[in-house]
């Protein structure tokens, strides 16, 4: 009676293992977090009426599109990392997981470059509510990317030792990390569309 059940095996009536349920619940709360931020966007934009600038006025759509491609690619490589483990190919897992992390860091660098360009041209969050919500939304999103990089790096590095002793449990961890990562990509799809394209 010491072991916690259903860490790897699924429970019959729910069809889930614990961490899978946990991550979906966490993602539900994240939907509400970004919901709060998007709600602010809607309210502020409607309140500003015609004064609200088009995204392209302040933001470089080409760079934003590039970053979107980067993140979408990382979603695919993250999924491939999990698929590699399902096919018992640890080497491929390491490669795909590594690419995922690299793409994430590229995204962050590009975002950092965008921010620094803004500051260079004296565009600060305090200038108007468009920039305020832009910096806040992308900032919170970037924090989520950083969190994902930390977790993915741990799982790529020291955490990957678990593959030797408990391969199924480790595969589940990658699946769960992957679900988080796809969510971060999903949020960006809306973020990019709303802030850059509207």
């Amino acid at each position: 009676m010491q072991e916690i059940p259903y860490t790897v095996a699924v429970r019959q009536d729910t069809g889930l293992y614990n961490a899978k349920m946990g991550i979906w619940l966490f993602l539900a709360s994240e939907v509400m977090l970004f919901g709060g931020l998007f709600s602010a966007y809607v309210l502020l934009r409607v309140g500003a009426g015609e004064h609200w600038p088009l995204g392209a006025t302040y933001l470089n759509v080409a760079i934003g599109t590039f970053n979107t491609f980067v993140l979408m690619s990382s979603s695919i490589t993250m999924l491939m990392a999990w698929a590699s483990l399902k096919m018992k190919n640890f080497g491929h897992f390491k490669m795909y997981q590594g690419i995922t992390i690299a793409l994430a860091l590229l995204f962050l660098s590009v975002k950092g470059y965008e921010y620094s360009m803004k500051f260079k041209h004296h565009h600060f969050p305090s200038d108007n509510t468009f920039l305020a919500i832009y910096f806040t939304l992308t900032g919170i999103h970037a924090l989520h990317i950083i969190g994902g990089v930390v977790v993915n790096s741990y799982l790529w590095g020291p955490g990957s030792k678990m593959w030797q002793a408990e391969p199924e449990r480790f595969t589940n961890r990658i699946e769960v990390a992957g679900l988080y990562w796809h969510f971060v990509d999903l949020v960006w799809i809306f973020l990019f569309s709303v802030m850059y394209l509207l």
């Binding site: 602010a40 969050p125 910096f135 806040t136």
Partner: peptide, 19 residues
């Protein structure tokens, strides 16, 4: 979470001068 979002925005108002 919506309160978390609001708290972030209030922090931005107080620390980054947003409105």
């Amino acid at each position: 979470p919506p309160l978390e979002a609001a708290s972030v925005m209030q922090l931005m108002d107080r620390l980054a001068g947003t409105s």
